[in-house]
C-alpha cells in the first residue's frame, strides 16, 4: 500500500467520534461528500451548471445538482463529489471573463441533514430567524448564523433542513444542536 493510500484510508471528517442524535423526532446526519462552488456572477451563469437561476432566498435543483441563492450575484453550487471536474470545466467555458468568479470550496465546509418534527425547534435555539413554516417556507435558503457560527440554511421539506457549515465549526454546531434537543425535553 502506498503512503498516499494509507493517508486516504485514515482520513477523518470533523464529526469523527461524535455521537449524533438519531431519533424519530430529531436526527442529525452528515450529508454525503459533495462538490461545492461559490459562483459570483449573473444569475444567468447558473444555467450552464444545470438548475435554473434561483430566485432570491430560494434554492433551485435539477437532478443531483442544486444552486442556492446567497446574495445578489452570489450562488452556492452543490453537486455530487465525482462531478467536481465536469462542473468546473462546464462553467469555465461559459462564464463571462472579468465579471464572474468560480471558487471550489468543497473541503471548506460540510453538509448536515436535520430531520424530524423537532428540527426547526432545535435550529431556533441558536438561529434568530423565524423558522415557522409561513415565514420560512419549504424551498427557502439563506445564509444566516447559529449562535456564533455562520451557516447556510436550506429547508428541503417541512421537517427536513440541509445546513452547510465550515468544517472547523461543525463540532461546535453539532454540540449545540444536541444540547438544544436535550432542552426541548421531547416536547
Amino acid at each position: 500500500m502506498s503512503d498516499h493510500a494509507v493517508m486516504m484510508a485514515s482520513r477523518r471528517g470533523p464529526l469523527h467520534g461524535l455521537s449524533l442524535p438519531k431519533g424519530t423526532d430529531f436526527s442529525l446526519s452528515e450529508a454525503p461528500h459533495a462538490a461545492r462552488f461559490i459562483l459570483r456572477g449573473d444569475g444567468a451563469s447558473v444555467a450552464a451548471f444545470g438548475p435554473a437561476a434561483p430566485k432570491p432566498l430560494q434554492g433551485s435543483a435539477a437532478g443531483t445538482r442544486t444552486a442556492l441563492w446567497l446574495g445578489p450575484y452570489e450562488f452556492l453550487l452543490l453537486a455530487p463529489e465525482e462531478d467536481a471536474t465536469t462542473v468546473e470545466a462546464g462553467l469555465k467555458a461559459t462564464l463571462p471573463a472579468g465579471t464572474s468568479s468560480l471558487v471550489d470550496i468543497s473541503h471548506r465546509q460540510i453538509g448536515l441533514v436535520l430531520e424530524g418534527r423537532l428540527a426547526a425547534r432545535c435550529l431556533s435555539a441558536g438561529c434568530p430567524l423565524d423558522l415557522a413554516l409561513a415565514a420560512f417556507p419549504v424551498g427557502m435558503a439563506t445564509r444566516t448564523i447559529y449562535l456564533k457560527t455562520e451557516i447556510v440554511l436550506w429547508r428541503q421539506a417541512e421537517t427536513r433542513f440541509h445546513v452547510e457549515v465550515w468544517r472547523s465549526f461543525a463540532p461546535y454546531l453539532v454540540g449545540h444542536l444536541a444540547d438544544a434537543l436535550a432542552g426541548t425535553n421531547g416536547l
Partner: peptide, 8 residues
C-alpha cells in the same frame, strides 16, 4: 452590511 446574510 448584511454580513451573515447576503453579504451586501
Amino acid at each position: 452590511r448584511h454580513i451573515n446574510g447576503c453579504g451586501r
